[in-house]
Nucleic acid binder design. Structure first.
Length: 419
RNA sequence: GUGAGCGUAGCUCAAGGGCAGAGCAUUGGACUGUGGCUCCAAGGGUUGGGGGUUCGAGUCCCCUCGCUCACCCCA
């Protein structure tokens, strides 16, 4: 048996319905907030991610699917969507059209990681980016939007946490202070954290190991090191969130895995998710556009993990059921049933044929199992008389109607149900 | 990359050295052209794969593959 590739999962129809629900709701909210869709390639030049995400991040170092095309160009399957959006923004000079760009995208991303709950190698993200706005009102506006989206999806137990990561002015001094605090305390840290001291010391702060938590319990917090502009920005974001009535918490230890983030960072967490508990995350990236060769342009964006969101969705989405089900008995009636099928479909009535030469009972069982509302039976007798039996499956009553009246009668019934 | 747990029918799971089973699902029948409830029956398995121990292995041992969860990392 040929199976799918590890971490590349099939999304079967019942799940696909949920994905679609999330996507449709997201589209509605995003477009109400003034975003336009952008569709981008699934592969980019490797260099885009090395420069955008940061060459020493885990994503770039060991999680990307990279390959050469036949000409030898180094490509990567996109591990995230922000860098490609910014690339397109610069490449097409979108800032010439409008100083503010509000773009959203949805589609698969790829990271080579060990799959677990809420984590696959091909996974879907819905993301949005605002380029060209430095105003802290925007940060609050977007956080409000994300909150609203989960609300609209009926997911109530997500919690918003925010933090400020500072900027290129103040973050280094915090980093320095943290390193000094940790100096001499290395023994109490786990192996991973000892490594992190060299790579990304801020990460030590959100280590789950008990010993590390004890060590960092009294560590300095970034809030005390923010420069005036960053502090003011953060204060304003908090004020605006309160104004909008957006519930949030502050997590001074929150760190981002991508290098480009500055100032506001946020995560939306749900306890039901297991270890991979972030359903959405993002923040401000005021340097990225410039770093990728564009004009000095601030940015704010986020991505929603669709798999994780689907895991949180409560009710099973309603299946799309056929409205009419045609059963024919006998060879001549079977031709007539095909004609009727087409007529009904042309009128927009979802109709299915019952295939195979089986007993009427077998056909009826299947109609019942499918959950169709109306069954049309054409047998030899009906064929002779020019009629069709119409059975209402819910009421359990049936009537014999004229063949040439079937479409109009059914149309009336189906519309009456409110389709 | 590391660790743990689990692989038996389409699905959920029994059988823990001695005939591979149940429920659900599927198909047919009871009811010759009428669904749901009920009852009866049938089909469906190299017990993930390979090797070993044994008179005998789904069961014990080794290897391997896969899945799951966690670490890591992150949406």
């Amino acid at each position: 048996m040929i199976t799918s590739v590890k971490g590349f999962n099939d999304i079967l129809p019942d799940q696909a319905l949920k994905y679609r629900k999330v996507e449709e709701e997201a589209r509605a909210v995003l477009e109400a907030f003034g975003f336009s869709e952008i569709r981008l390639p699934i592969a980019e030049r490797l260099e885009l991610f090395q420069r955008g995400i940061g060459a020493s991040t885990d994503i770039v170092e060991k999680e990307m699917y990279t390959f050469q095309d036949r000409k030898g160009t180094l490509l990567a399957l996109r591990p995230e969507g922000t860098a490609p959006v910014v690339r397109a923004y610069i490449e097409h000079g979108l800032y010439h059209r409008d100083p503010v760009a509000k773009l959203y995208y949805m589609g698969p991303m790829f990271r080579y990681e060990r799959p677990q709950k809420g984590r696959t190698r091909q996974f879907y993200q819905i993301g949005a980016e605002v380029l060209g706005v430095e105003d802290p009102r925007l940060d609050a506006e977007i956080l409000d939007m994300v909150t609203l989206l989960f609300d609209r999806l009926g997911i109530e137990d997500v919690e918003l946490f925010i933090n400020s990561l500072g900027c290129e002015v103040c973050r280094p001094s915090y980093r320095q202070a943290l390193l000094e605090y940790l100096k001499g305390k290395e023994e109490g840290l786990c192996r991973d954290c000892k490594r992190r001291l060299g790579t990304n010391p801020l990460r030590v702060l959100d280590c789950k190991v008990e010993g590390c938590r004890e060590v960092t319990a009294r560590a300095p917090e970034i809030m005390g090191f923010l420069c005036n502009p960053c502090r003011e920005h953060f204060e304003e974001v908090k004020g605006h969130l309160a104004l909008l009535g957006v519930p949030y918490g502050i997590d001074p230890r929150m760190v981002r895995g991508l290098d480009y983030y500055t100032k506001t960072a946020f995560e939306m967490i749900c306890k039901r998710l297991g270890a991979q508990n972030a359903v959405a995350a993002g923040g401000r990236y005021d340097r990225l556009v410039k770093d990728l060769g564009g004009p000095d342009t601030p940015g704010f964006g986020f991505a929603i993990g669709v798999e994780r969101t689907v895991l949180l969705l409560k009710d099973r989405e309603e299946e799309i059921l056929p409205e009419a089900y045609i059963i024919s008995l006998g060879r001549e009636a079977s031709s007539e049933s095909l004609r009727l099928l087409k007529e009904l479909r042309m009128e927009g009535i979802r109709t299915e044929l019952s295939y195979g030469e089986r007993s009427l009972k077998a056909h009826m069982r299947r109609a019942n199992k499918l959950g169709v509302a109306h069954v049309l039976i054409i047998g030899e007798e009906e064929l002779k008389k020019g009629t069709v039996v119409l059975k209402d499956m819910e009421k359990g009553i049936q009537e014999e109607i004229r063949r040439d009246r079937v479409v109009s009668i059914l149309k009336g019934r189906v519309e009456a149900v409110g389709v």
